[in-house]
């Protein structure tokens, strides 16, 4: 039972019960989760930038164009079945909107990860992306549950969708 911290440009995969793959405080980076829930395998990549653009001398897994194929490889190496993979995306926020330019990385990261997933024919089943808030993501391989938390908030289940989510929201709207 241990937390594996997935920091900038890192990725990790696990099929151990009680394990938790965690990325704390995602800003413009994307936390990409790949799951084969039936097999109890999960992977998490902390993608920093959309593409390597020829920078080959640095860690390649910080770039979406290398991180996504590598994460697919790692979860499949642990027994995940490629056609059964489900993707969940978290992050890609614009923390300092006013600076613009270089700070639009969040949106570009999201688009790049989505394009890589589409090319690999993996569907994004849930996402908590964009906006201007930082997020923490946790995923347990055996449970297949993806939890997301914003600053000062509580862990909320992002995936699989919870059954009672809709009625609760409707009641709040009525009240």
């Amino acid at each position: 039972m241990s937390d594996t911290l997935v920091r900038m440009g890192e990725l990790a995969a696990s099929k151990t019960a009680g394990d938790m793959l965690v990325t704390l405080g995602l800003g413009s980076c994307i936390g990409l989760v790949l799951l084969d829930r039936r097999m109890g395998v999960a992977g998490l990549a902390h993608v920093v930038l959309p593409e390597s653009g020829g920078h080959t001398e640095v860690n390649q897994f910080k770039f979406a164009d290398h991180a996504v194929p590598e994460l697919i490889k790692r979860v499949c190496a642990l027994g995940a079945r490629r056609p059964m993979l489900e993707a969940v995306m978290v992050g890609g926020a614009s923390m300092f909107a006013a600076i613009g330019g270089s700070m639009e990385v969040g949106a570009r990261n999201e688009a790049a990860v989505k394009a890589q997933l589409a090319a690999a024919r993996i569907r994004v089943h849930a996402s908590a992306t964009g906006g201007s808030r930082g997020r923490t993501v946790r995923v347990g391989p055996k449970t297949g549950i993806v939890l997301v938390r914003e600053a000062g908030g509580k862990d909320a289940q992002l995936f699989p969708p919870t059954v009672n989510k809709l009625p609760t929201r409707t009641l709040q709207e009525v009240a």
């Binding site: 900038m8 800003g27 980076c29 920093v48 930038l49 006013a98 600076i99 808030r133 600053a151």
Partner: peptide, 26 residues
């Protein structure tokens, strides 16, 4: 450039600043 202010998780703010420098160095 003009300043931008945000209150959020330390990691989110710092990694966003570092991300723009990440292409050329680890």
């Amino acid at each position: 450039s003009p300043p931008a202010t945000a209150t959020d998780m330390l990691g989110s703010l710092v990694e966003t600043v570092l991300a723009s420098r990440a292409a050329v160095s680890d």
